[in-house]
Structure formats: C-alpha cells, structure tokens
C-alpha cells in the first residue's frame, strides 16, 4: 500500500502531497497524521499541496477533518501552496475551508505556525516587546 510520508521537524509535522490522491490514500493520510500528532505531541501540522491539481469535496473534507482533529489535540494545521485554479474551483464548489489556516508557501506557513503557537500562550506579550525593540533601534 502506498503511503504519503510525514516528516517531523521539531514541534511540527510536514506533509508534502506529490501525487493525485485517491480516496483510500487520503483516508490513510488522515489517520496516519492524527496518530503522528498524538505520538510526537506536535504543535503544528503543515500540509503542502502545491503539487496537487485537483481538490474535490472529498479531499476538501479530509483536509477539514485533519484540521479539526488536530485542533482538539492542540495542534494548528496550515495548508500551503494551493494552486490558483484549485482555489477558484473550491470556492465555486462551495467549499471555502473556513476552519483551515492557509499560507502561500512552506516558508510563510512555518512562520504562521510559529506565530500561532506563540500567540496561543507561551509568550503572550511577545508582540509588544518587539515593538519596544523597534523603537529603541530607531532612536
């Protein structure tokens, strides 16, 4: 059985989908990923779909499920690199994936994950500190 590899990078899990998914493969990915979140206690999941040319309602549902499941396990899911044609089609299909965070590419996705996790508790007044730093350096 084919499998989509899941990479662990520090606190985050990284999945790059390189092939067109058929249903079973997508369902396996869903359960594998949730398992991995649990065993590694990951704080974030990053799914790169830049190589995916078709996302239909089934795939959309899987993505939504992964996001919701990770969320109750205290992990943030970010979907990155969606193709313009795929985005337009999903909207027309009626699937805006409103519960899912998105970013343009892996780099920005990582940045977003870091920010989300910081905002969610550990260093709450991080932003303010940075602003003060800025003022210091300009004066």
């Amino acid at each position: 059985m084919e499998k989509i590899p899941i990479l662990k990078m520090g606190q985050f899990l990284l999945v790059t989908i390189q092939v067109d998914l058929y249903d079973r493969l997508a369902l396996n990915l869903e359960s594998d990923l949730v398992q991995m979140v649990s065993t590694t206690e990951a704080r974030g999941v990053l799914i790169d779909i830049s190589a995916v040319s078709i996302v239909d309602s089934f795939m959309g549902r899987i993505i939504g499920n992964i996001a919701s499941m990770s969320k109750i396990m205290d992990a943030v899911t970010v979907v990155v690199g969606m193709q313009p044609a795929v985005a337009i089609t999903l909207i027309e299909l009626g699937l805006p994936l409103s519960g899912v965070h998105t970013a343009l590419n892996v780099e920005k996705g990582m940045e977003l994950l870091k920010n989300k996790i910081l905002v969610n508790g550990e260093v709450p007044d991080y932003d303010d500190d940075e602003q003060y730093d800025d003022l210091d350096s300009t004066q």
Binding site: I54, V55, D56, A85, V86, I88, T89, E92, L93
Partner: peptide, 8 residues
C-alpha cells in the same frame, strides 16, 4: 481554471 473545474 476551466480544466480544473471540469475535472473536479
């Protein structure tokens, strides 16, 4: 875009 819509 139309290809993607059709295939979806």
């Amino acid at each position: 875009v139309n290809q993607t819509k059709l295939i979806t």
